[in-house]
Design a binder for these strands. Sequence first.
DNA 1: TTTTTTGATTATCGATCGATAATTTGCACC
DNA 2: GGTGCAAATTATCGATCGATAATCAAAAAA
Lengths: 252, 252
Amino acid sequence: MVKVAKRAVVSTAEATVPGAPAAKRRLAPEDRRRDILAKAIEYFAQVGFDGGTRELARHLGTTQPLLYRYFPTKEALIQEIYKAVFLDIWQPSWDALLSDTTRPLRDRLQQFYEEYMAAILTPQWIRIYFFAGLKGVTINVQYLAIVEERVLKRIIREFHRELGLAVPDEVAPEDLETAWTLQGGIFYYGVRKYVYGSPMHTSAKTVISQSLDVFCAGYRAVLEQRAAGAPRTTAAETPVPPAKPTRRAAKV
Amino acid sequence: MVKVAKRAVVSTAEATVPGAPAAKRRLAPEDRRRDILAKAIEYFAQVGFDGGTRELARHLGTTQPLLYRYFPTKEALIQEIYKAVFLDIWQPSWDALLSDTTRPLRDRLQQFYEEYMAAILTPQWIRIYFFAGLKGVTINVQYLAIVEERVLKRIIREFHRELGLAVPDEVAPEDLETAWTLQGGIFYYGVRKYVYGSPMHTSAKTVISQSLDVFCAGYRAVLEQRAAGAPRTTAAETPVPPAKPTRRAAKV
DNA sequence: TTTTTTGATTATCGATCGATAATTTGCACC
DNA sequence: GGTGCAAATTATCGATCGATAATCAAAAAA
């Protein structure tokens, strides 16, 4: 084992510059902790939570036992990653945006999904999201519940409002799942890109636009048909007769 | 360490019954190999490919070195899992089903997605699919390419045919991505169920039906509008002016 | 400058990993 | 019943894991 430059000369000139933490040997506790957390997110997003603490320290440019001065265990560090990734995402302005009845719903959805996906569709977020989900962490299910409450149910209600239908107090299960297909369809774009590394055919913005075009026109047709035909098919398992040619199917 | 029942009496009566491999101490090589592969899929689907070979052997009811008599390395076993999971899924009948122009497209899609999702929407398949994807395996991208070629491009072409539009030789990138949102929307149902373990609101069949209702009506509207308005917006990044209120948006 | 504090290092522990060698044991065949 | 082959076992290797203790050294306090 050859030791290279045991004591490197550190330029003390810019040592006090807060903008460039560059290669400082000794950091303030809060800075070091923040640096570890940031690099840990990056590293574990790449290799998963089974990645080693030694290689993480190598990415940090420090040694492995230093991690345990700032986090009692590896699991504690991972828990902090969960909090940083999942809880610091939601922008309060999105609540107002989605409920802003002065703007057409189509515009609100376009802006919301562009901003939301700009925050979500990163390799760090998506991969951490799946690594955590596959590990069976409860915070993941909690996040889905938040999405349902703040996004999907709101979208369903706003659709009813804009079409002049009665706004339901409790969103019907099948409507909630339908909203999930919108969310999932857009989200799956990021999955293909950052989980599978598949080459994409258009930009995320285009996918959002196309997806909303299809969904807005399609869901409106479904709601209008429901209002015209069966007045209320609450919680029906099969609101449309499955398989076997129907009259509707002939129209596509 | 206490050894319990070092030599258990094996009922040799039904030893030759092929239907019940139950608790046999000594198996034929092909049977043992098949058993290892099946249990390995089940085990690694639960805990990921970082799961230990000793615990896998414990699930098999055997010892760990036995695995290396049938698979040279752990990685070789994983490669066989990939092949078993990804390559043995596609049913040849699906090719004919999707192209059967004697049936309405809506019916074809309903039947296809019901059968396809019955094969895909299992905890084993979906979780292996994501564990492999996050590991960066090439076979995963290959699978996506197969889905594009055999499912998505075919769906786009069949939509054009059924609407009386010119069937494109090369499917436009934005149409391909739109088809991905249908696929992803349905698939994400399984992701929520088997990756996140989230409680679902309706059955998969209902989600497929609702999703197809929305997509068929919505995509038809998009295609008809495209045919009426701009005659050909090939590969346009933004076929619809994004953001800012438009006349279309006012209708939802 | 000297002393104190504490951030960061080296060295190392026990446990567990994938993998191999040596040994035991079940089963077919004569 | 005895014999040979191979399935399955026990024992163990070197490497790596998360985590701890002891030591060093840089910056603050005196």
